[in-house]
């Protein structure tokens, strides 16, 4: 079976797998958002496309977008304008490289996995800033600058929250973090109890991570870069056709990726308690995706319930509350790590 160990074969397999997960996942999340959102508003939502329950609506929308003219406004910086959506999409997909779906089902088990994903996930804001700047539109410009301000405010709590996890797990590899959550936490009689980090005292860290993740996704209540009632559509104002689709897919794909990271870091990832060995490779993706689905549902739920904040209030929240709390979280975790 040297054929399986071939580097190129594995690369193609992994690429196909990640692309498959990202794109189908994004379509599923778009459909879920359409359906959940409309039922929360006592509407029905997509109904006819695809025959039953309108399951094909995201596909139909995608096809419609593909047919649209790809406009770029006069005075825009064509090259930058054209590349921006692909930067966003690339950054989103690259995050999936380190997300472990099983002990062996991972794009690359990097030793610095946590570091890598924090670095890569903030890259998408570069695309947003490019889009805002190159659109030659005042609304886009304001939206792009808001996104940049938001990034600076939110990348810090995100990193600090992850630092606490890394301290607790003692490794930066995401597989290692999952394994750490399967280690014996304490023993009752002859039972070895293991628990995900969220139960092992990381609830504060989880809350900070999720708030920062939603802010990074720029979804309600932190969707100021888009804020359709203020900036029409923010940095997306001028985009149409396939480039808009890229942004759109990117947003939903990064919803999945950030939820997957949160599930891995705090909720035990692919691990099934009491099950070891190769079988986890089979069960793992299902377990992880269930956790992702729950987190995605909460994100969608919030989006259809709450209003949005103001940019300065978001900064206040980030700098005066989340960062101190995250630092406190690190301190507590370190103390526990040293003492116990």
């Amino acid at each position: 079976m040297e054929f399986v160990d071939n580097f190129w074969f594995q690369l193609v397999l992994k690429l196909a797998g990640i692309l498959g997960v990202v794109l189908t996942g994004a379509l599923v999340v778009i459909y879920a958002e359409l359906k959940i959102g409309s039922h929360m508003q006592t509407r029905i939502g997509p109904y006819y496309a695809g025959g039953r329950w309108g399951w094909a609506q995201p596909l139909a929308d995608g096809l419609k977008f593909l047919q649209k003219e790809d406009l770029s406004p006069t005075g825009s910086d064509r090259t930058v304008y054209g590349f921006a959506p692909y930067v966003v999409m690339m950054a989103t997909i690259a995050v999936f490289v380190v997300v472990p779906f099983g002990p062996d089902m991972v794009g690359a088990n990097l030793d610095l996995g946590a570091f890598y994903l924090l670095a890569i996930s903030s890259l998408s804001v570069l695309g947003v800033l490019m889009a805002g700047w190159s659109s030659a539109n005042k609304y886009s410009l304001i939206g792009g600058l808001r996104a940049a301000a938001q990034l600076i405010a939110y990348e810090l709590p995100l990193v600090l929250a992850v630092v606490a996890v890394v301290i607790q797990a003692g490794t930066m590899s995401l597989n290692g973090i999952v394994d750490a959550q399967q280690q014996t936490w304490f023993t009752i009689g002859s039972f070895n109890i293991s628990a995900p980090f969220i139960i092992q005292g990381q609830i504060l860290g989880f809350a900070i991570f999720m708030i920062a993740a939603v802010a990074e996704l720029s979804r309600i209540p932190f969707d100021m870069p888009i804020a359709e009632s203020e900036l029409t559509m923010g940095y997306l104002t001028e985009y149409s056709g396939i480039r808009f689709t890229m942004f759109f897919l990117g947003e939903y794909a990064s919803m999945i990726s950030l939820s997957a990271i949160a599930a891995t870091l705090y909720l035990g990832g692919y691990a099934v308690p009491g099950v070891h060995g190769n079988i986890v490779n089979l069960l793992g993706p299902g377990v992880l995706l269930t956790k992702v689905a729950i987190l995605v549902f909460v994100i969608i739920w919030i989006r259809w319930t709450w209003p949005r904040l103001r940019e300065d209030q978001l900064q206040t929240l980030a700098w005066t509350w989340l960062i101190p709390l995250a630092l406190l979280n690190i301190a507590i975790v370190s103390i526990f790590k040293v003492v116990f």
Binding site: M40, Q41, T42, R43, I220, S229, W304, W306, P307, R308
Partner: peptide
């Protein structure tokens, strides 16, 4: 009004 502040759901509930 909530729609202008970003909350979309009161729209449908009140219009209903």
């Amino acid at each position: 009004y909530p729609l202008e502040l970003g909350a979309t759901t009161p729209l449908m509930h009140s219009l209903r």
